[in-house]
Design a binder for these strands. Sequence first.
DNA 1: TATTGTTATACTCTATAACTATA
DNA 2: TATAGTTATAGAGTATAACAATA
Lengths: 178, 178
Amino acid sequence: MDTDAVDASRPPQAGAAFLLAQLGAHAAELFAQRIVRLDLTPAQAGLLRLLAQTPGRSQRELADVLGMPPSRFVPFADDLERRGLLERRKNPGDRRLHALFLTEDGAELLSRLRVEAAAHEKQMCAALAPSEHQELTGLLRRLAQQQGLSPGIHPGYRSMRTSSTSTAGRPAPDQSTA
Amino acid sequence: MDTDAVDASRPPQAGAAFLLAQLGAHAAELFAQRIVRLDLTPAQAGLLRLLAQTPGRSQRELADVLGMPPSRFVPFADDLERRGLLERRKNPGDRRLHALFLTEDGAELLSRLRVEAAAHEKQMCAALAPSEHQELTGLLRRLAQQQGLSPGIHPGYRSMRTSSTSTAGRPAPDQSTA
DNA sequence: TATTGTTATACTCTATAACTATA
DNA sequence: TATAGTTATAGAGTATAACAATA
């Protein structure tokens, strides 16, 4: 009985919840690094996927799904539009709305994105045998469903960088104003 | 051969890596909400755990482990010191160093933190049977080890709120469309 | 009057770089 | 001269709120 369950000097092994947070942050970081080559941030990649899934949605809708305020969505979409990856079309029925669509270039980039995602998947699960990999995926899917997470987007998009304007590279120690 | 073609309009099911990022962000969010009651952020909780594990480390060391620059660590520790949760002691051998220790109040708060962590674990894994829960934990541990993640701290601490001062203004908008 | 998209402003957070005290 | 801790400042990123067009 003196063997207290909780010993402050030697904490218990990390549980699944902590490991999920730890591995999730790690996975997000690795993926972000990976798609720097495509000059995309994870949030931008999420929008491209979203546009492929359900084209023609309004900016307001998309901003809601991604969990960002409309005022932030505008420059976020502006950047991708300038790069020719998505296009805004006026909705004839309600001319207040801008329907967003993926361009051909956007679709092409998305397919390259999927290649990166596959490589990332392999890298993250390198420790597992194929059957274990499948087992893990199944368990995670059940967790996500029970937690009410919608497929394809995750809460992290809210707080993720929305622009990739050359901040993507190394710290670039510009030692100005010495 | 055409069966493995990638159809943009109907993306493949999410893989384990994406689910990890999604569930990880979700878990971190839930945990953050949970410990608002203790007036702690996840990063603060991480430091308390760290101090219990290996007391007496210098601020520089701790900042490195948590992945934050020293200039940010100082006010971060200041806050917890003001609240009497940790204490700085001058190192007699090298008086430049501040050795950090958990106070009694800090240790007491940490034990309450562990209670919350246990409840959080149960909440996150509610979808699983006990044997599956154990199975998942084992798989995640192997992933974390293979990825070189050190136990107890995770990369997300770098970008997490370091103060809990009156952030309670906006509790939980809960904008997820479930 | 309500809603979509947009712009502007104010605020928070952060890293970089100076500064001090010890070594 | 180098390092631990600290402070100051400037910059990036954000949300809130005002605005214009359309309903």
